[in-house]
Design a protein around this nucleic acid. Sequence first.
DNA 1: GATGAATGAGGTTTCATTCAT
DNA 2: GATGAATGAAACCTCATTCAT
Lengths: 219, 219, 219, 219
Amino acid sequence: MIEKRYKEAFERASEARKEKILEVGIEEFSAKGYENANINVIAKNAGISIGLMYKYFSTKEDLFLTCIHRGCKILDDSLEEIMKSNDKILKKAERLIRTTCYHSKKNSNYIRLYNEITSERNPELAKLIAEEIEFPTSRKYITSIAQAFAKNDVRQDLDPRLFAFFLDNLLMSLQFSYTCDYYRDRFEIYTGINVDEMDDEQVVTQLLKFIEGAFTFEK
Amino acid sequence: MIEKRYKEAFERASEARKEKILEVGIEEFSAKGYENANINVIAKNAGISIGLMYKYFSTKEDLFLTCIHRGCKILDDSLEEIMKSNDKILKKAERLIRTTCYHSKKNSNYIRLYNEITSERNPELAKLIAEEIEFPTSRKYITSIAQAFAKNDVRQDLDPRLFAFFLDNLLMSLQFSYTCDYYRDRFEIYTGINVDEMDDEQVVTQLLKFIEGAFTFEK
Amino acid sequence: MIEKRYKEAFERASEARKEKILEVGIEEFSAKGYENANINVIAKNAGISIGLMYKYFSTKEDLFLTCIHRGCKILDDSLEEIMKSNDKILKKAERLIRTTCYHSKKNSNYIRLYNEITSERNPELAKLIAEEIEFPTSRKYITSIAQAFAKNDVRQDLDPRLFAFFLDNLLMSLQFSYTCDYYRDRFEIYTGINVDEMDDEQVVTQLLKFIEGAFTFEK
Amino acid sequence: MIEKRYKEAFERASEARKEKILEVGIEEFSAKGYENANINVIAKNAGISIGLMYKYFSTKEDLFLTCIHRGCKILDDSLEEIMKSNDKILKKAERLIRTTCYHSKKNSNYIRLYNEITSERNPELAKLIAEEIEFPTSRKYITSIAQAFAKNDVRQDLDPRLFAFFLDNLLMSLQFSYTCDYYRDRFEIYTGINVDEMDDEQVVTQLLKFIEGAFTFEK
DNA sequence: GATGAATGAGGTTTCATTCAT
DNA sequence: GATGAATGAAACCTCATTCAT
């Protein structure tokens, strides 16, 4: 778990200001990447001085990690909303896919930020962030699949953890394909259609079939 | 298609030198990422002067793109080797998975380089690279699936391009999980096992089941 | 003479607070030197706000000067104690040396602060501080030597002021050698023994011989 | 012993340039102290770019240490010149004092730099520098005194190392008194005469008497 | 009197790129 | 063709000082 990466002064700041700083930070980091993001720009856009920024965060890295924490919380909240239902696993998958297709624009910055993280090259940091982000998500998937397994809703020869992993791989890739430049181009190369003009319903339908088959079929 | 990003002088250089420069460049870019890679260091490690490096490439970006071109060729060659066979689609998938699991170390630099690309934030560049890399791969997958579809080897309600896309998403995610820090940690969080100590055979078996089900099952 | 460098508000503060501020200031300045000392840290450690600190002192320099004033008073008090006696000059020297050797730890902060001052590079300020510190000390030495001279206790071809100067040079160097990093290392290089493990009695004996000879011998 | 603190590129620079950089560096460091010295200013005054400065020295600290090394070499050379003679110890002392009084202006920067060092607050660094500077000097003094001791030229109850230490304390203090602001003021307070207007001959005479007595007198 | 949030100038350091030889 | 010395813009970060409350 990432311990808090902000200083006490940040806690004391007004909600509006905290909000603004993280929003602007997420904007900058997701747009330019960690290296090219400029703290001075973030401070200016957030309407505070650079000195105050450093009263809030010791380093650029700490600001980045706090932005990630925030972005993840938002993504995890919407995941929680879906996964806590009593729907069957495939129903949940459908809702996840739909959310990705229809609402990815609203959260595009968070997703791009997440994408930025995945090429993090500091191993210790990568580990921290991975635990922060992936642990809650993975538990939700694994638990849902294990329950479905217990109820015989899915094939009995699957390994819940690996299948959760494969499922998340598909959803993660889809998320990126709706928001990140490179993945968007890749989507178009595969499908022949720009993701903005794509009939989302077809993507939903096909991916659901894919997943349904994967979880259901048993020789 | 990426037009050539090197200068004429580079073409005139000896094969050994060209080889060395790109090898060292891939090493540096994959280890540190584009921003943190140092072109002066690459020149030194490649045994040439920085001045000569700029006789070969106009900018750091051009060197990067040429390294990518080279890395992709190597990855695409091994893909070609597998896809040109007459094996059935699932057999091909199996070979792809095995290659990923068992041989990812040999090509880990290329894969990390590929991962680096996916967070490229320059839209025009992203497009160029995506076309360079994804087009050949996608054609192979789509064609294979279309052939299988024609032979009734796979379910008849699938869209070949989307299913090719989903398939590649799974394989791409797996590749990253074997080589890139963040994805390796993520793998361990899902499976509970460090990727280096994982029984690859189980991954192969489960992913194959997943894909087989996805391509086979039909309500 | 240094005019007061604190504001009226400081005079009105409680004794305990004044004490605390100067104590903490001396601690910080002597530990890190003027440039690296942080006035915000001093305020925090003294338990007052930085705003109040600036109600008490106009600038960092003023706080520094007030700390010096305080440190010097303490050192001068212990000097006064020794010099006011009716002992002969060599007896006084012995007591000074013993005080330096045996009690330097108690006053080490003040001595390090004094050392910091000696590299002051603002000429006007240097002059002010020198007068503040050196004048009282020098008078005591000069007077004592002049009295000894009058009583024929010391050689009759000495210049009291220069001999006072040389004497203080020896005592000052010894003080630094017991408290300041660089001078402590220097001491060990000369004597071969770490100052903390040195038999102080030998230092006392030898330095006394040195001084006694210097003041007594006459061709 | 300080290992070299410059990079290879510095060795390859022309003698004139190396000279210039160190000269300008010593000037700046001795005038403003380590903290307030500005590397950009040094680079500009030395006629090179800041980038090149960092090709020569990894950090400000390294430049500082190399300047010290250079300054010490010059001071040590002139000491060597005096100490290698066959003169008796008191004759050597006389020459040292005269050099200090008459020629201290020429080397004033080096001496101020030396003064700066003595308030160094990084213990490891202090140790390195002390060994670099004090070791050669101390050996010369100790050896000379030991030889004089063997020849019965000095009192037989002295400890050569401690007396060498006291002797150097006197000479060091005198050096500072001729060159460093604070010590110059202190000198005037003790003697009543500004060091620039002082009759050096009197200082020489008196200090020689002091030292002669110290080394000769024996109860 | 007392607070501490806020400022912003200024310093060190990096590295892609140029160009004289 | 080949070298590598040289450049300088730009980024991160510190801390003395101010001022509204």
